[in-house]
């Protein structure tokens, strides 16, 4: 496991095809560059095109050049003026933030139990938790709807926070258990000598050490909650309670005739750029978090 994480960050010169010292025409090299550039282009182009469309207005929107002739920010101001988009952004931030805090806190405590203590039923419970991550969202939809109504939190952010936990908890627990297992035993023995309680041990001793793993899992949980659509669509009704994905999916013009593509693209760019920035900055951590969850799964 640790080897895998290290390999993700390492720069091992591992080129199956690269045969050094052979003066041949570098077909492989050309193929490598062409394929890589093609993948980079295809990955990034839709976002660039959305950015370009968001800066166009009126009939300019219907001509496909990448660089807009008369760039304008009218779509951006329009999104905030015509919809409660600022409120939607705040909602998404609140939901995602609470979901991350709750799932990290709960799973860190549980990770100590599952990662450092051996007890009867541990394997079975871990398998059950893992299987919860395979649960289709619609399978809990009607039961969750009943729960949300019973608590009287329909059309509030609380409903989304509670519902999203079923998506994030299984993998935050799994990843943190994986990382918790790798920590040295001596730490805990030293802490026990000092008569430290379990909660202090977990939050004061282990949490700082698990920081990289917490950042990776936290980011993944944040992205999951930020992007969540089905629960947000079902458990909110008013425009003010919507999160951003729902707001974007349901954007319409007052006439309701043609979709306001310029504004949709502006909203899309606003939602996406922070995520892309986060992901590019933390790419190594995210990659290690993703593969840790998968390999252990």
């Amino acid at each position: 496991m640790s080897g895998l994480v290290k390999a993700g960050a390492g720069s091992r010169a591992l080129a199956p095809g690269a045969v050094p010292g052979q003066p041949r025409f570098p077909w492989g090299c050309i193929g490598y560059w062409a394929a890589s550039l093609l993948f980079i282009f295809v990955s990034v182009f839709p976002l660039l095109y959305a950015l370009s469309s968001s800066l166009k207005q009126g009939s300019g929107l219907f001509s496909p050049e990448l660089w807009p002739k008369a760039p304008t920010f009218a779509n951006y101001s329009g999104v905030f003026a015509e919809q409660p988009f600022a409120q939607n952004l705040l909602n998404s931030l609140l939901v995602a933030g609470s979901v991350v805090t709750l799932s990290l806190g709960l799973s860190l405590m549980a990770a100590w139990a599952f990662g450092r203590v051996e007890f009867r039923g541990r394997g079975l419970l871990l398998m059950l938790i893992l299987s919860a991550s395979m649960l289709p969202q619609v399978a809990v939809l009607s039961g969750m709807f009943e729960l949300v109504r019973a608590f009287g939190i329909y059309d509030t952010l609380g409903a989304l926070i509670i519902a999203d936990l079923v998506l994030t908890l299984p993998f935050t627990v799994w990843v943190l258990v994986t990382f918790m297992r790798q920590l040295p035993k001596e730490l805990e023995e030293a802490a026990a000598m000092d008569g430290v309680g379990v909660l202090t041990l977990v939050f004061r001793v282990y949490m700082p050490l698990l920081w990289p793993a917490m950042v990776a899992t936290g980011l993944l949980a944040f992205i999951a909650a930020w992007n969540e659509f089905l629960f947000a669509l079902t458990f909110t009704l008013s425009t003010e309670a919507r999160t951003v994905p729902v707001a974007i999916a349901l954007i319409s013009t007052p006439s309701g005739f043609e979709l306001p593509w310029g504004k949709i693209m502006a909203a899309s760019v606003i939602v996406t750029l922070p995520l892309v920035a986060l992901v590019v900055v933390f790419q190594r951590r995210i990659v290690s978090g993703l593969s840790a969850g998968a390999v252990k799964g």
Binding site: S43, F229, P245, T272, L275, V279
Partner: peptide
């Protein structure tokens, strides 16, 4: 980038 962009 495609992975991080919300599905919606």
């Amino acid at each position: 980038v495609p992975w991080a962009i919300p599905t919606v």
